[in-house]
Every structure is written in structure tokens, then in C-alpha cells.
């Protein structure tokens, strides 16, 4: 009896572990979000186009990750994308006229938000909004512009 009991417990544990692993693989949601900061503050920015930015993307200043994107939604009134991100509270002296742009790490890498410092004396705080933003650069648009330029040049000649 004791023998069967331990076999059953072992089997149950194994099946549960397997199911858990399967669940993890199918959902792919994991504790990947370990941008560890005890205190954070939330900042908002509006972009015309966010490209393929996703939540949990890093927010970097001078190339150093100081925060993460927490939510992305579409504002139906202003027809803009509203990106909310949190910044580690130890970086609480970021000028409020800093500008945010959506950049790509590497040629084919993931997209992130890059902050560039402004010159104001007042700083970004919880709930404030980054006013100056630059949309993601879409490769298709670049190619389109290039083709248009090339075309008009031909006509000039």
C-alpha cells in the first residue's frame, strides 16, 4: 500500500510538473520582468506611431536601462498611441523637456524607448508626460522616401 502511494505521489508530481512546463511554454508569460526597482514613478508619452514596441520593452537613457514600458493603448480622440512607462525612482532628476524616441537595438533587434535629456530645471515626476516625442522609424517609409527622392532626381535631369 505504501509502495503504491509513493508511486502515485511521484506520478502526480511528474504530471503536474509536465503540465506546468506545457502551460509555461504555451503562455510564455514568465517572471521576465525583473527590472528591479523598489520605487518607481510612471510617465506617459504620446507617439504618432510606435512601430513594433511592446510592453516590457526597456526605457533607456544614454543607453542605460532605467525603466520599462508598462502599457500601450490607443487614444481614439487624439488618434495617437499612449505609452506608459515606469522609471526607477533613483533617476528622479530627468528634465521634463526631455524627448522620447522609439529606437531599435541593432539592425533587427527589439525596439525600446530612448530618452534624451533636455535643459529644464523642473523634473519628470509621477504622472507627468513627455511632450517631445519621435515616432518609430519604419523601414518601409524610409525606402518609400528614398524611392520618391530617386524618382524626382531623375525628372530634374
Amino acid at each position: 500500500m505504501q509502495q503504491t502511494r509513493s508511486v502515485e505521489i511521484g506520478t502526480g508530481l511528474f504530471v503536474l510538473l509536465g503540465m506546468g512546463a506545457l502551460f509555461f511554454l504555451t503562455t510564455q508569460t514568465t517572471g521576465g520582468d525583473d527590472f528591479s526597482a523598489d520605487e518607481i514613478y510612471t510617465v506617459e508619452a504620446r507617439f504618432e506611431n510606435i512601430g513594433s514596441l511592446r510592453t516590457r520593452a526597456p526605457v533607456a537613457m544614454s543607453g542605460v536601462t532605467i525603466g520599462r514600458v508598462t502599457s500601450i493603448r490607443f487614444d481614439a480622440v487624439t488618434l495617437e498611441a499612449v505609452v506608459q512607462f515606469v522609471i526607477d525612482s533613483q533617476y528622479d532628476q530627468i528634465p521634463d523637456d526631455s524627448d522620447a524616441s522609439i529606437l531599435t537595438s541593432g539592425i533587427l533587434g527589439s525596439q525600446y524607448i530612448g530618452l534624451r535629456a533636455g535643459g529644464s530645471d523642473t523634473y519628470l515626476a509621477d504622472g507627468s508626460e513627455v511632450l517631445f516625442t519621435q515616432s518609430a522609424i519604419l523601414l518601409e517609409n524610409l525606402i518609400g522616401k528614398f524611392l520618391v527622392n530617386a524618382g524626382s532626381k531623375d525628372e530634374d535631369e
Binding site: L17, G18, M19, A21, L22, F24, L25, Q28, T30, G32, D33, D34, F35, R54, R56, A57, P58, T65, R68, S105, G109, S110, Y112
Partner: peptide, 29 residues
């Protein structure tokens, strides 16, 4: 399923903890 999951954590361990790839980019991608 267990193998693949543990393997992913192995990669995470090496790439993120050892070679300091950004953890957000790792899972986001």
C-alpha cells in the same frame, strides 16, 4: 515540455545572468 522549459531557463541563466543580455529584450523577443 519539461526539457524545453528547463532549457529556456538554462539559456536565460547564461545569456542574462552571465553575458548580461537585457532580460526584457530576451523574453520580449
Amino acid at each position: 515540455a519539461v526539457f524545453s522549459t528547463i532549457g529556456l531557463f538554462g539559456t536565460h541563466l547564461v545569456a542574462v545572468e552571465l553575458l548580461s543580455v537585457d532580460v526584457g529584450a530576451f523574453w520580449q523577443q
